[in-house]
Every structure is written in structure tokens, then in C-alpha cells.
């Protein structure tokens, strides 16, 4: 078994050595297509980061006509905090509200001279769990606040939330369509390049079937070769994506996204880099498999 496995590995390596140009073409194709995919991935990743930061803004504010007693307030806070959709509850007193308003006005804070703290209402600011930062989550919390605690004046930026959800839907659909198209195009290009390399070895495949090679014995070295090509292509794609990222993408995205509120532009995480290389291996194997299915007929 070990000897047979070693034989198949030796054959795969010998195939690569004997056709360096064809093998280089396949590696180059995988590398280029995966670099494009990685480029796309970096943009998606950072836009996702941006939307996740924006979604932190999704919160419910319950304005209180009368400031309740500390005991009632504590009981409300406890009840609200126990709701599964709720992450944080913060009581904002009238004084704090006025202070925040003053800070927001900045240089124009003098306009508030003579304004008493009683002018602004106290409130409860309710932060939501990430999975509840959507219309359904917000409405569920609002309903429970209304029905459970009798809180009437609730604000949660309905219009902004609708626009934010529509934007997220558009992003998701766009990324899915574009990502799916890119993946399909990558598989198509890689499969065709590998098919060309296999056509060059059509005679060898024919002879192997004639001397009694089983389909898997014939295919295994080519699949292994495809995997090696995918591995090298994936590795080169990471390198290419890193060059593009540090060359101009980081600067370009910074200009675009930092202004929109993101705190830093990030490259692919180690796990995502691993997935990209894994995708390269998968593409190499699938590309070989698709081509071999037609070429190896017993």
C-alpha cells in the first residue's frame, strides 16, 4: 500500500518535472484567478466590517416622562437586560442628556446657557445583541417594552433601519452573485487549463488503459498533480493579494472606508488564507477530475 502510494506520488512529481511549461500555466491560472478572488474577498471583508460597525448604532431608546424611583429603575433595567435580544441597558439621566447635548454642540455650547437639566427627558438606552440588530429584532424588543413595562415613547430610527436593511440586502445579493460568478469562472478557467495539460498526455492515458490500469490508478497521479498545482497557485495568490493589498488596495480602501467610520483596514485572516489555499487545491482536483472524466474511458 505504502509502496503504491509512493509510486503514485513519484509519478505525479515526474509529470510535473516533465511538463514544466504546462504545469506552470496551470499554476499561473490558479494563482491569477485566486488573486482576483482574494482581492474581492478583502473588499467584502472590510465592507462587512463597516456594516457591522454601523449596526452597533442600532439601539432602542425609551424616553421616560417621569424619572422612576431607584428601586423601579433597577427592576426595569433587570427586566430589560433579561430579554434575549438585549446586550446592554444604560440609564441616561436628564443631567447626562444635557451634558451629552452640550458636548455635541461643541463650540456652539454657549447656546445652552440658562437651559435647565429638566428640559431634556431621561432615557434608557438599550443596546442589542448582534443577531437582533435588524427590523424584526428591534420590533420584538419594542413590543416587549410596550407590553411588559408600559413604556410608550420608544425611538429606534425606523427610517434609518429600513434603509440600512435594504443596503445590507443589496450588498449580500451583490456579493453572492459576483462571488458565485467569480468562483464559477475560476473553476471553468482552471478546468480548461488542466484539460489542455491532460490533452498533451492523451497518449499516456490511452496506453495506461490498454495495459490494464484501473481508472483510479490512472487518475490518482493526475488528481495529485492538480492538487499540487492548486496548492502552489493558492500560495502564489496569497502572495499576489498581499502585494496588491500593501501596494494600493490598503490606501484606496482607507480613503473610502475610514471616512465612513471603519477603524482599520484588514488583510485576510490566517484562517481565510488557509481557505483560499484549500480552495486552490479543491479547484485543482475538481479541474483534473472534470477533464479526466472525459479522457479516461476504459
Amino acid at each position: 500500500m505504502l509502496e503504491r502510494s509512493l509510486y503514485l506520488v513519484r509519478r505525479a512529481l515526474r509529470n510535473i518535472r516533465q511538463s514544466p511549461v504546462l504545469c506552470g500555466a496551470a499554476i499561473g491560472t490558479v494563482a491569477v484567478t485566486l488573486t482576483i478572488l482574494a482581492f474581492f474577498g478583502i473588499v467584502v471583508l472590510n465592507v462587512q466590517k463597516l456594516t457591522s460597525q454601523w449596526s452597533r448604532e442600532v439601539q432602542v431608546v425609551a424616553y421616560l416622562d417621569q424619572v422612576p424611583t431607584p428601586a423601579v429603575l433597577e427592576s426595569w433595567e433587570k427586566t430589560i437586560a433579561n430579554l434575549p435580544q438585549v446586550a446592554t441597558v444604560e440609564f441616561v439621566s436628564r443631567t447626562t442628556a444635557l451634558e451629552r447635548f452640550r458636548q455635541r454642540l461643541g463650540a456652539d455650547a454657549s447656546l445652552l446657557a440658562g437651559v435647565e437639566p429638566d428640559t431634556l427627558p431621561a432615557s434608557l438606552e438599550i443596546g442589542l445583541q448582534p443577531e437582533a440588530r435588524n427590523r424584526a429584532g428591534v420590533e420584538s424588543v419594542v413590543r416587549q417594552l410596550r407590553e411588559g413595562l408600559g413604556l410608550g415613547d420608544l425611538r429606534y430610527g425606523q427610517d434609518w433601519l429600513d434603509r440600512f436593511e435594504a443596503f445590507l440586502d443589496l450588498l449580500r445579493t451583490g456579493f453572492l452573485v459576483l462571488g458565485g460568478f467569480l468562483l464559477f469562472a475560476t473553476l471553468f478557467i482552471v478546468a480548461n487549463t488542466i484539460k489542455l495539460t491532460l490533452y498533451a498526455r492523451k497518449d499516456e492515458l490511452e496506453v495506461m488503459t490498454l495495459v490494464g490500469g484501473t481508472p483510479w490508478f490512472i487518475k490518482a497521479p493526475f488528481l495529485l498533480e492538480g492538487a499540487i498545482q492548486g496548492l502552489c497557485g493558492g500560495g502564489l495568490a496569497i502572495l499576489g493579494a498581499a502585494l496588491i493589498f500593501h501596494g494600493f488596495l490598503q490606501h484606496g480602501l482607507s480613503t473610502l472606508l475610514l471616512a465612513a467610520g471603519i477603524d482599520g483596514i484588514s488583510f485576510l485572516q490566517p484562517l481565510q488564507q488557509g481557505l483560499l489555499v484549500g480552495l486552490g487545491v479543491l479547484l485543482g482536483v475538481c479541474g483534473s477530475l472534470l477533464s479526466l472524466r472525459r479522457l479516461v474511458r476504459i
Binding site: 497518449d203 499516456e204 488503459t209 490500469g213
Partner: peptide
């Protein structure tokens, strides 16, 4: 079929040798 072919030897007019080997 591969196991049948292992009991046979086949020779062709155009030899069918692998040129890179």
C-alpha cells in the same frame, strides 16, 4: 476490464509508446 487486459499483450502499427518516457 483492466484485469482482463493484464492477461493480454497488445501491439499496434503505430507502436503507441509514450514519447516523454
Amino acid at each position: 476490464i483492466p484485469y482482463l487486459r493484464r492477461q493480454l499483450g497488445v501491439v499496434f502499427q503505430d507502436f503507441k509508446l509514450i514519447p516523454t518516457r
